[in-house]
Nucleic acid binder design. Structure first.
Lengths: 237, 237
DNA sequence: CGAGATTTTGAATTGGGTCAAGTTATGTGG
DNA sequence: CCACATAACTTGACCCAATTCAAAATCTCG
């Protein structure tokens, strides 16, 4: 927890999702700064929030990564997403003022806490911020629809291919290699996200490797042939 | 398309989701009315919008019902939801200004068209409307997470039980019978929504009937034992 | 009424799950 | 820095829930 948190400006906070793409003017930036954004550091396996927690803030991930998961009464849990630098989490809680899922850190890092009341107030004065907030929420809805398509109509290897391609594309967006990266999540977590058992995930990785599409060294992934990986998605390889 | 559309007030438009729960004052109602809401009628199998259409408006369903579905390049399609009276559709399009899915009428009815630009402008002046809009979007995110849980971790009969209970609850909210209702969608559409084949859906219906939990006459459903149906969801009956 | 669409049911098949064993990482304390 | 313990991952063999294919029954509507 930084004691100089109130001094953080939008740029120092790296609110990529929130600030960069909306073209705020300097005075607007100033006002956003007045939100009194708090930075918070977190360690691997820390909970940012839990299901049932009172909602106060959204969180912009400065660096590090999270998984979000929903819990069912009977103990079942389903990973609903993996979030990385620049992404916003907590949107699910706006609906009821209570968090509907939980966010667990997969590696340590920093978040900016964005008090939602203040964000709403400010977005009444700054139309571009208002619009941007709407877009972020809508983007989450579209993302979720993509996962439904995946879970509802793809076979195991198609799901894994789609997952790897999604990661690849998100790393590329962040200026990292789209073909060589390190998985932050376990086979079990990937399986939960994709609606598969961890053994199935492992077998699919092995199969892609045998097919010469990727090289897998446990969590280190190298995509040898992006086109082939894309082709997997409708032809089942 | 009604020529008296501009005369429609909020209450006559039955914008349950949008108006009723937010406690607008009379002058605020007036302003909302100034949106110039257009009513539009539609027939069974009409498209309200298609994937790729330019985004202009959200739609509040006055009466009738829709399915929304996403399309994959290879022709696969996945039903992402069934919407009924009082629900808002089109939220997915805010993110890119283009509709990401398509909405097809399952029975004829009426919608109110809510021009999104005007909605945004107005919600800058009416905080309760702003808050409500945010809640509607967030609720959609939570709903989607529930479907991910269903698709990712439930067996066929659990999925169908969850689906029937969801319908039951939504009919109850609308003052209709929670135990006797008519399905607006085919086995094929239910299957797409639940990530199952139509034969599997049909078999699950038959099994529930044999178990004395429901009575099925094709699309006419009677739930005999709500508690048993709920129990299906974690014990696989 | 009749034609096409939808639904049900049966039988055979299979993709992914389950269970189990062995292997490779990872992290901890000495 | 190594040795050990524990967690994570891989692989094999078997099994079962759901799919596929097929045919019959029922429904819907012009």
């Amino acid at each position: 927890m930084s004691t100089t948190a109130h001094k953080s400006t939008c740029s120092s906070c790296n609110l990529a999702e929130l600030c960069l793409p909306i073209g705020l003017t300097a005075p607007e930036m100033q006002r956003l700064d007045e939100l009194g954004i708090q930075k918070r550091s977190f360690l691997r396996s820390d909970y940012l929030y839990r299901s049932g927690d009172k909602f106060r803030s959204l969180f912009a991930i400065n660096n590090g990564s999270f998984k979000t998961q929903v819990l069912h009464e009977d103990g079942r849990e389903q990973v609903t997403g993996f979030q990385m630098t620049g992404e916003i989490i907590g949107l699910d809680a706006i609906s009821t003022d209570v968090h509907a899922c939980e966010a667990v850190a997969m590696e340590s890092g920093m978040v900016c806490e964005l008090p939602f009341n203040k964000l709403e107030t400010l977005s009444r004065d700054i139309p571009s911020l208002q619009r941007h907030l709407h877009k972020i929420m809508s983007r989450e809805i579209v993302r979720d629809q993509g996962i439904m398509l995946l879970l509802g109509s793809m076979r195991a290897e198609e799901r894994l291919a789609a997952f790897l391609l999604n990661l690849s594309q998100r790393y590329a967006t962040r200026g990292l290699s789209p073909t060589r990266f390190h998985l932050r999540m376990s086979r079990q977590e990937i399986g939960s996200y994709l609606g598969l058992k961890l053994e199935t995930v492992s077998r699919a990785f092995s199969h892609f490797q045998e097919a010469g599409i990727i090289i897998v060294k446990v969590r280190a992934i190298e995509i040898i042939n992006l086109a082939d990986l894309k082709a997997c998605i409708n032809s089942s390889c």
